[in-house]
Simulated assay, not measured.
Amino acid sequence: MDAAAIEEMFQGLGPVTIKRMFGGKGIYHMGSIVALEVRGEMLLKADEQNAPEFAAAGATQWAYEGKKGNPVKMPYWSIPEDAYDDPDVMAKWVRLAYQASLRAG
Rank of each mutant, 00 (worst) to 15 (best):
A59D: 01
I33A: 08
I18G: 15
P87L: 12
S32C: 12
S32K: 14
D82R: 08
L36N: 06
M42K: 02
M42C: 12
S32E: 15
A83H: 09
G12C: 12
I18K: 12
Y28F: 15
K73A: 13
L13R: 09
E48K: 00
F10I: 13
G12P: 12
P71G: 02
E37F: 07
G23C: 13
L44G: 00
D85H: 08
K73E: 12
T17M: 10
K25F: 15
L36R: 03
V38F: 09
Y84V: 08
T17I: 09
M74D: 09
G12H: 13
I79L: 08
E41D: 06
Q61L: 02
N70C: 05
D85N: 12
S78V: 10
P80F: 09
P71V: 05
G14K: 09
A83K: 06
L44Y: 04
G14R: 10
S32Y: 14
M30F: 10
L43G: 00
P52F: 01
G14F: 11
I18L: 15
M42G: 03
E81M: 12
S32G: 10
G26Q: 08
S78D: 08
N70I: 06
G31I: 06
A83M: 11
G23D: 15
M21H: 13
I79H: 03
Q61G: 00
M30K: 15
I79S: 04
D47K: 00
G26P: 04
D86K: 08
D82G: 05
Q11P: 07
K45H: 02
P87D: 14
A57Q: 01
D85V: 07
A83P: 09
S32M: 13
V34H: 01
L43P: 00
P52I: 05
F22S: 13
K73N: 11
R20I: 14
N50F: 00
A51W: 07
